[in-house]
Design a protein around this nucleic acid. Structure first.
Length: 255
DNA sequence: ATTGAGACCTGTCGGC
DNA sequence: TGCCGACAGGTCTCAA
């Protein structure tokens, strides 16, 4: 898409998680995509008008680039088709329709409701033990719930929150406030957790970029009743539901 | 203000 | 083989 002009947009199904903005296709046609970037789990395309196309994959969304959009190749879940001046055709496919498409006016990026309250990017220098401890100070929720709170750290999801807690040897049920002192200074656990989050994400990006999600590639996620992967631990992975989502952890080495 | 539960929608998988 | 319930990677809203 980058450097190419959008020549046509086919919205085959406009009812994703949120309704599409008015005149969605019309406002896109003729614009050049200047750059692609990402904030948390939102994909952002900077357009020549200064507007930004915001996209989210939800739980089941994906993009595919093809050369020709033969009707026979289109899947019923290909909800948006972008035709580019380069000849590329970009398909947005989302069976579960939890995805999002929005168009943000010039200058309104920082005030957009989806983006305005996001915490720091986990791989940025801004996200360190001090920042994490500050965000968790006084929080009565579990540590796991805090990691999924996008205001604490942006873009961490269920799987990698679970994985990071295991690497850091911290219990998902532990109160979030316990990683900080009363004044909000980081305790040892905050340092360990920040390091674990960065490690887990960097490893995941290296391993999975370009690939589709596949299960059974994780240390503890989806591994209930299996032995704890920590050498010498000897514990067994348990599954619990926290806030309606599955948590997997080793009660022996995660405290 | 914070927190947890439920809702959104569809596909897949395991058990009977 | 076929049906049915449980469950799924993310956010959002609502009530306590």
């Amino acid at each position: 898409m980058v450097g190419a002009r959008i020549t046509a947009v086919d919205v085959r199904r406009p009812d994703l998680r949120a309704p599409f903005p008015r005149q969605f296709a019309k406002r896109l046609i003729g614009q050049t995509v200047l750059a692609l970037s990402r904030r948390a789990k939102y994909l952002l395309a900077t357009l020549s008008s200064g507007e930004t196309l915001l996209m989210h994959l939800g739980m089941s969304g994906s993009f595919e680039v093809i050369r020709r959009a033969e009707p026979a190749h289109l899947d019923p879940h290909d909800h948006v088709v972008f035709f580019m001046s380069s000849g590329n055709v970009v398909l947005f496919n989302d069976p579960r329709r939890f995805g999002v498409m929005d168009l943000i006016g010039r200058g309104d990026l920082d005030s957009h409701p989806a983006l305005s309250r996001l915490g720091p990017e986990p791989l940025s220098d801004e996200f360190d033990a001090a920042a994490l401890a500050r965000a968790c100070r006084g929080k009565k929720t579990s540590l796991k719930a805090a990691l999924l709170d996008q205001r604490v750290v942006a873009g961490l999801g269920n799987i990698y929150a679970v994985e990071a807690l295991h690497v850091a040897q911290l219990s998902p049920m532990r109160k979030a406030s316990t990683i900080a002192t009363a004044s909000g200074a980081p305790r040892d656990a905050a340092f360990k957790l920040v390091d674990a989050i960065k490690l887990v994400l960097e490893r995941a990006i290296r391993r999975q970029s370009g690939k589709r999600y596949r299960g059974a590639e994780f240390l503890v996620y989806d591994r209930q009743d299996e032995p704890c992967p920590r050498t010498g631990c000897g514990g067994t992975i348990l599954r619990r539901v926290q806030g309606g989502r599955s948590t997997f952890y080793c009660p022996r080495c995660q405290r």
